[in-house]
Design a protein around this nucleic acid. Structure first.
Length: 685
DNA sequence: AATATCCGTATTTTT
DNA sequence: TACGGATATT
């Protein structure tokens, strides 16, 4: 095979034999099993560079990653090897983003208009709820599954390609009796989406797959790529695997990279079967294993390996560290959450003074709100931080309001957006909003000279509404009419003229939230079209506050706070894992069966393996129930079951019961509590 | 009588 | 933040 020697040597100089073999593999299917910290990103980036170097046109390479950030990082690294201009031509992004890109162009072949809007998770749930109410399932005396559950069931059914009855039996047994009602809702849900030209996340994949089964388009799309590379393959689902198989029907060049020990997205219907069955699905696949860990020092890796060795399902690899270092991970037992927050802050500062910048340190936790108290303490001490995961910017009600205006303008058939906007008006509840919508949708007037689009109708026709809303209705009319003629940035500005007064009345802390609207306006200004702005925001929402703030914050040093899920693929010199108590890790929402618990174990493993040099695991003994201020009701926690006595032996143990760290406790209260805590520790093992 | 709004309580992870 | 139930408003 021809390729230019000098560049290749540069590309490969820094790779170990396994990494080298993976990145220079020729034609055909390739499976790379890459353990945590084994240089997966480097290898994949090198492979992209190698392919380009070997003469594959970059625009004929498709790189599917878990987030856009991941794609960017890989392409930046590839760019360092073969030049930025070349690497930037590679098709990179998530399955969903790539599907969107393809469907905007080729969607007509499967009956989609180019101006479809994309529903995010909560939009989808809202639509479910609408149907749930309409079909009278909300009022039945027996409790019918809630909107989020309905959305989850629907999504799992679609993504696993398994019959609803079976999905219910396996994953939602407590809902099995409601299958009839669900069928009705799901049918209506699909119908509504088609009528309104809206797609949910799952539709993006489904229609991509449909494109690949449409006669001529199929060859066009599959044929426009010479190589397909997929990162984090352990977290893809059956539908995504179907898409890949269809993409590579005739050209077998596919590379997938993943680690079955890091599969943490089964709640999204991801299945490790994809990785395990890859050699069967793509016969003749070469398999390369990366097992040399370059990230963590040996004592850190020892803990991680020990945690995994106790898993139900065994993994046939054990990572070997290439880095020496003596300090063992620390297991820090704290009195309660308050003290935990203080100790974490203390440690962070200690490391900072020792020369490790804040952004080389991260605090990881199972769920978004686990960092609440810590955030308060960090703020109090003026330690800057950025939080990833948890509640996102885009989920905030006021942001959704503003996006709903934009969606109406982009796709007037989008009833969900209308529904939301109309209810912002005084005296307009669900009922009136529905009435107005019915008028706007009306009879699709054949031969009448009524305009067809609900937006046109709204702009020129009078609608029945409660008197209190009449004036605002007029203002809305004007706002939409004006905004229609403007670009994204000015559009938001004009709509804010209408929305800001309502917003200030509806939300009590409007002062803080107005910043978000300003940022939204600024961000919109950077886009050429509202369509791009909207889809980018739903398919790749800003994952942290800093993503939005832009450059000013980037210069500064700040601590990273992240859910473990969002920490996937990242690494830090110092990692603090907080709330290592049973019920938090594993979450008691996920201890139903052995498989769920195994996934929680892998999650803990992912958290531990993010650390390079220092690993601190914190365990607060005492948990308060509900009201923190008044009531003293609390209970004692157990250390996470994943730190067994054997694993515990690999930690340096520390107990922090220092009274000065616990301001709210007086000596008389805390002394017996401390004794109890110590006693409780004795039963813990 | 119908519907909007208010209030207290409970919250997993994300494309 | 979202739900259910109680209360307020038209």
């Amino acid at each position: 095979m021809f390729y230019s020697e000098p560049v290749s040597r540069l590309v490969l100089a820094d790779l170990n034999p396994a990494q080298h073999r993976a990145s220079t593999y020729g034609e055909g299917p390739l499976l790379v099993i890459a353990g945590a910290g084994t240089g997966k990103t480097k290898t994949l980036a090198a492979r992209v560079a190698y392919l380009i170097d070997r003469g594959v046109p970059p625009e004929r390479i498709l790189l599917l990653t878990f987030s856009r950030r991941a794609a960017q990082e890989m392409l930046t690294r590839a760019g360092q090897l073969v030049g930025r201009g070349q690497a930037s031509k590679v098709w990179g992004g998530t399955f969903h983003a790539v599907a969107n890109r393809l469907l905007r162009v080729h969607g007509h072949a499967v009956g989609l208009p180019p101006n479809f809007t994309v529903l995010d998770q909560s939009d989808a749930a809202d639509l479910m709820n609408l149907l749930r109410t309409e079909l009278g399932l909300a009022e039945t005396s027996r409790r019918f599954p809630k909107k989020d559950t309905l959305a989850a069931i629907y999504s799992r059914t679609v993504n696993t390609n398994v019959k609803l009855s079976q999905v219910l039996e396996v994953a939602f047994p407590w809902c099995a009796d409601d299958i009839e009602g669900m069928r009705g809702i799901f049918q209506g849900y699909v119908k509504r989406k088609r009528e309104q030209a809206v797609l949910d996340y799952d539709d993006l994949l489904l229609f991509w797959k449909a494109l690949l089964h449409a006669p001529t388009i199929s060859d066009l799309i599959a044929g426009s790529f010479d190589h397909v590379l997929v990162d984090e393959y352990q977290d893809t689902n059956a539908l995504q695997a179907d898409v890949l198989v269809a993409m590579r029907r005739s050209i077998g060049n596919i590379t997938v990279v993943g680690d079955d020990a890091q599969a943490i997205y089964s709640f999204r219907a991801a299945t490790v079967r994809n990785i395990l069955a890859f050699p069967q699905q793509f016969p003749g696949a070469e398999i390369v294993k990366l097992e040399q860990n370059y990230r963590s020092i040996a004592p850190v890796l020892a803990v991680a390996n020990a945690v995994m060795s106790e898993a139900h399902q065994q993994y046939d690899k054990e990572l070997r560290s290439r880095r020496t270092g003596e300090q063992r991970p620390r297991l820090v037992t704290c009195l309660d959450e308050t003290q935990q927050a203080q100790v974490v802050c203390d440690r962070v500062i200690q490391h900072l003074e020792q020369g490790i910048a804040l952004n080389r340190q991260a605090v990881l936790f199972r769920t978004g709100h686990h960092s609440d108290l810590l955030e308060v303490e960090l703020t109090r001490r003026n330690i800057p931080f950025v939080k990833y995961g948890g509640l996102k910017f885009i989920e905030a009600a006021h942001v959704k309001d503003m996006l709903a205006f934009l969606r109406i303008l982009e796709n007037p058939a989008d009833d969900l957006a209308w529904f939301r906007v109309l209810q912002l008006l005084d005296g307009m509840g669900p009922r009136h909003a529905q009435t107005v919508l019915d008028q706007l949708r009306g009879q699709q007037g054949l031969g009448e000279d009524r305009p067809n689009s609900p937006l046109e109708r709204f702009l020129v026709e009078r609608v029945d509404a409660p008197p209190a809303a009449a004036e605002q209705l007029d203002e809305l009319r004007h706002a939409l009419r004006d905004a229609r003629a403007l670009g994204p940035g000015q559009r938001v500005e004009r709509l804010r003229h209408f929305y800001d007064p309502i917003f200030e009345r509806v939300y009590d802390n409007a002062g803080v939230r107005v910043r978000d609207l300003e940022q939204l306006e600024q961000l919109a200004g950077t886009y050429a079209t509202t369509r791009e702005f909207l889809t980018d925001l739903t398919l790749d929402p800003p994952s942290s506050t800093s993503d939005l703030a832009g450059s000013p914050l980037l210069e500064e040093d700040y601590l990273i706070l992240s859910t473990i899920h969002s920490a996937k693929g990242c690494e830090w010199d110092v990692v603090h894992v907080i709330h290592a108590a049973d019920g938090n890790i594993p979450s008691d929402m996920a201890t139903g069966n052995a498989e769920e618990i195994d996934e929680e174990r892998r999650l803990f493993y992912v958290a531990l393996t993010r650390a390079k040099d220092w690993l601190h695991v914190y365990f607060p003994l005492r948990y308060y129930h509900r009201r923190r201020g008044r009531s003293d009701a609390h209970s004692y926690a157990q250390l996470t079951r994943f730190i067994s006595p054997r694993v515990k032996g690999l930690f340096d143990l520390e107990a922090v019961y220092d009274e000065q760290h616990s301001p709210e406790s007086t000596a008389s209260v805390s002394a017996p509590v401390t004794v109890d805590a110590l006693l409780n520790e004795l039963w813990a093992d």
